[in-house]
Structure formats: C-alpha cells, structure tokens
Design a protein around this nucleic acid. Sequence first.
DNA 1: CATATTGCGTTTTCTTGGATAGCATTTTTT
DNA 2: AAAAAATGCTATCCAAGAAAACGCAATATG
Lengths: 136, 136
Amino acid sequence: MLSKKTQYAFQALMYLAEKDNDEPVLIAEIAKKKKIPLKFLENILLELKNANILESKKGKGGGYFFAKNPKDVPLATVMRLLDGPISLLPCVSLYFYERCKNCDEKGCGLHMVMSQVRDANLKILEKKTIADLAKG
Amino acid sequence: MLSKKTQYAFQALMYLAEKDNDEPVLIAEIAKKKKIPLKFLENILLELKNANILESKKGKGGGYFFAKNPKDVPLATVMRLLDGPISLLPCVSLYFYERCKNCDEKGCGLHMVMSQVRDANLKILEKKTIADLAKG
DNA sequence: CATATTGCGTTTTCTTGGATAGCATTTTTT
DNA sequence: AAAAAATGCTATCCAAGAAAACGCAATATG
C-alpha cells in the first residue's frame, strides 16, 4: 500500500493539475479541498518542490504551482520520492537495490517472479503521469 | 515492499517445497538454513498453519510440512495473509476495500491507474505459486 | 512597515514491524 | 508413567517509521 504521504501527494498534484491556469495555489486551499492535514501537506509540497516537481512563491499572491509540465511527471517518480522502492523486494529494486542474503539472485525463483512484478508495475507507473490523473 | 514477515515466509515455504519428501521439517532447521530468527519464524509458520497452508506434528520426528500441494498456493494468498492488501490504494483493493473519501471512484484518474496496477500484479501473483518458486 | 505566505527544524503521538521470553501442550520413546 | 522432543500460544518489549502538530524564521508584496 502507498503511504498516506504519497496518497496525499497524488491528491494535491491532481488538484494543481486540474487548475487550468498556472497561478500559485495556497497550501491551505489544497488542504481544505482535499482534506489533508495542513502541516503535513506543507512538508509534502516542500519535498515535491525540492525534487523540482513543484515551485513556490512566498508572500501575498504566493502559493504552489508546477515547476514542469504535469505530463512530464511519471507516477513512479512521485512514489520513489516519497515512499522509496516500488519493488516488492530490495534485491529486485532498480533504484534502491540491496543484495539478497539467501539467494544468489540467479536461478532464484522468487527473484524471477518479483522482477516480473516490478516490470509490470513500472510499465504502467513510468508511463502514466500526473496529467493522466487529472483529465478525468 | 514486502514486510520481513512475508519475505521470511516465502523463504521458508521455498525451503519446504524444495524438499522432495514430505517428512516434517524442524522450525530450527529452517531458521538456521534460511537465517530467520527462530521465534519469529515460529509465529510465521503458525499463521501459515492456521491458514491451512502448512501442517505440523509435535513430538519427536515432528515439524512442519505442507497441508496442500505447493502448486496450489498462489503467492497472492501468502501475501494477503501476512501483509494484507496487495493493492496500492484501499479503494482499489478486492479483499480489503475501503471507500475513498475524496474521489467518487468513477472518473477518478488515480483510481483507474491503480486498478490497472492491481490487475497487472494479480495476474502474476495469483498465477505463480510456491511450486514455481522452488523449481529453480 | 504591515501583511501574507512559504520554509523548516523540532517535537509529539501513534502504529507497526520485528523480535524475545516463558510456559503449555502434544507426541514419541523408553 | 516419566522423560524428552517438538510445536502452540500468549504476553511483552523495543525500535523505527508514519502521521501530524508547533512555532518561529524567512521572504515577498504593497
């Protein structure tokens, strides 16, 4: 399961993407509309900003907006950023790989199946973007 | 990521499945060979027993062995038993469904994508069984 | 300067994963 | 019947992580 953090992130990103204009949106507005704890959302948006997915502006008329086109933000990127590995096992992870203590990873049945699972997931999650979520 | 519990379970089940004979295997033996904390493994095997996947025998010559053919135990079953939902969101889970607060689940882009992911996962995890892990 | 807004370190709370301890129960053997 | 060999089961603990809240600093606008 995705963590609340990532779930909230998707909600917030969807909300931003659905706005036609590119004007800054208040954290408070997103929090209210999407029922996300304000302070928690603050942290999340900040992480998204530090990852160059969002941008922000302070002071009056400030808020958050996309740093890049939503169609250039794959779901996998958001998930890795906030939740870490997408794979089910460390030994099949592409971005968070860790060697397996028991199996030699070659001829290990579990390793093979989990690689399949990973590929099936990535095929979808790398291709689908925030833009795909919005155009409902 | 799978929890340690489920990872250990797969290791243990693979070990049992790789034994040709159907003689009981000591918890201690599995723990040693697979480097799993003994007491922790005890709990795991017990859960697998209560789910009718394994069977046990006490006393001398006792131990654990399969209650059914390993080829009749899909990976998904083990995962749901020990880790809960396979889906990434509660609102797309088949066995642990919870309604979504925000979206109406119909015309929700996120819901659609996550359903796809779930299906892709289940297609593999429901079909592959413990037997597939063993024949390495 | 006053006001609006994000930035950010800190802390708190809560949950869960992971692991340990100890005794109870069942079965086999002698 | 007693001893030995296993699992059964419950309770508990610890650490880490997730989720959330607090307070003030920094920055931008007018």
